[in-house]
Deep mutational scan, measured.
Amino acid sequence: HMTFVALYDYVASGETDLSFKKGERLQIVNNTEGDWWLAHSLTTGRTGYISSNYVAPSD
């Protein structure tokens, strides 16, 4: 899985979204569905959809 880092804080707007904080590391589970990616937070252990605009590759 690809690992990304959050560029900004994000508060989930629905049950399927994932809230995260700036600097949080996220593993991308599925990024084939446009701008919203299914991600797993390595910080909180939660999984949900994130906006690809809010993250950048961590490598």
Rank of each mutant, 00 (worst) to 15 (best):
M2R: 11
M2A: 10
T3A: 06
T3V: 15
T3N: 08
F4R: 03
F4I: 05
F4A: 05
V5Q: 04
L7C: 10
L7Q: 06
L7V: 06
Y8P: 00
Y8F: 13
D9C: 06
D9H: 03
D9R: 00
Y10I: 06
Y10V: 08
V11M: 10
V11K: 08
A12R: 04
S13F: 10
S13Q: 14
E15D: 13
E15Y: 08
E15N: 10
T16N: 14
D17G: 11
D17I: 08
L18K: 00
L18V: 05
L18P: 04
S19K: 02
S19G: 06
F20D: 00
K21S: 10
K21C: 15
K21H: 08
K22F: 04
G23Q: 01
G23N: 04
G23V: 01
E24F: 07
R25A: 07
R25K: 13
R25H: 11
R25W: 12
R25S: 07
L26A: 00
L26P: 00
L26E: 00
Q27P: 00
Q27D: 06
I28W: 02
I28D: 00
I28E: 01
I28T: 03
V29A: 06
N30D: 13
N30P: 05
N31Y: 14
T32H: 09
T32N: 09
T32G: 09
E33P: 07
E33L: 13
E33R: 11
E33D: 14
E33A: 11
G34E: 08
D35R: 07
W36E: 05
W36S: 08
L38D: 08
L38W: 09
A39K: 00
A39I: 05
H40S: 08
H40Y: 14
H40L: 14
S41M: 01
S41F: 02
S41P: 00
S41E: 01
S41I: 02
L42Y: 05
L42R: 03
T43R: 07
T44S: 10
T44Y: 02
G45W: 02
G45V: 01
R46E: 09
R46Q: 12
R46H: 08
R46A: 09
R46W: 07
T47V: 11
G48N: 00
G48I: 02
G48R: 01
Y49G: 02
I50K: 00
I50V: 13
S51K: 15
S52E: 05
S52I: 10
S52C: 11
N53I: 13
Y54Q: 09
Y54C: 15
Y54D: 07
V55W: 05
A56I: 14
A56T: 13
A56S: 10
A56G: 11
A56L: 11
P57D: 06
S58T: 13
S58C: 15
S58Q: 12
S58W: 15
